[in-house]
Amino acid sequence: MKIITVESCYAVVGLYLFVLAGRIAAERQHPRRWGSALFWALLGVTFIGANVLPPTLVGYLVVVMVVLAATGQVARGASQEASREERVGHAERLKNRIFWPALLIPATAVVGTLVLGELHLGDVWLVEPKHVTLIALSLGAMLALIAAMRTTGASVGAASREGSRLLQTLGWSLILPQMLAALGGIFAKAGVGEVVAGLVAQAVPTGVPWVAVVAYCGGMALFTMVMGNAFAAFAVITGGIGLPFIVILHGGNPAIMAAIGMLSGYCGTLLTPMAANFNLVPAMLLELDDKHAVIKAQVPLALVIFAANVILMMVLVYRF
């Protein structure tokens, strides 16, 4: 038995989304009052009910959310952000005390990850060991919220209001990472990767050792860009190109191939809107009008690191 499960963390998120939906529904001046409220409420349902509802129903709810988002029914309300003078005033009053709730999140997450997973009385575990990182992070966020309310003297209502302000800033792009990951999962299941790997292996003279390296690293980066996820690309591209050609045919070192191959995949992650949680959500969080601004800043980085990876692998993989 586990006392704190990851499902209970999802339930907290779901309940908070209901509160947010309620706030919006009560806001008369909200430009898209009912559409927005429905969107957040449905997201709350998928968070709480994922294990109870049949997956098909969840799928339809997701479709409804996408339709709401696509037809512009999800909008942000008139936000009453505190004025700069007010914030400067608070900053002068609170000084560095304002930082410690923010530092409490990583601190709790780290300590929690190390300790909580070990705590058990016989078969009764305090937390689900499999999801200890996620649970520790959730607990950290909640502890930090309590600390922040104590430090600032703010009420629960104020915290919920500020949270909904930021959530509405993000808007429907909040569910993009989940959506795109789901899409990637479907691609993987459909066997897109095997086809790609097969084509590359036929089209490119992988009989030459350095060409095999270029094909493998390039395959990792490109396929990661399509899937939005280097992990999904790894099994497919390593199974289709890396293992048969670099390791088996040319006798390369599998550890070097895998390590640098995965990092080549990460270069693809830097370049793709499919990796929404790394590239698009930050742009929304930082309130940038250009959703691709983060990707644009990362293009030179990704290209340089990718080129270095290819050279490193060429030099190292057949030598050790």
């Binding site: 608070h90 609170l94 919220l145 430090t151 600032t152 703010a154 919920s160 500020e162």
Partner: peptide, 10 residues
């Protein structure tokens, strides 16, 4: 909620 609250308080 934490980040929003802390932002509001400077």
């Amino acid at each position: 909620p934490v980040v929003g609250l802390l932002e509001r308080y400077g």
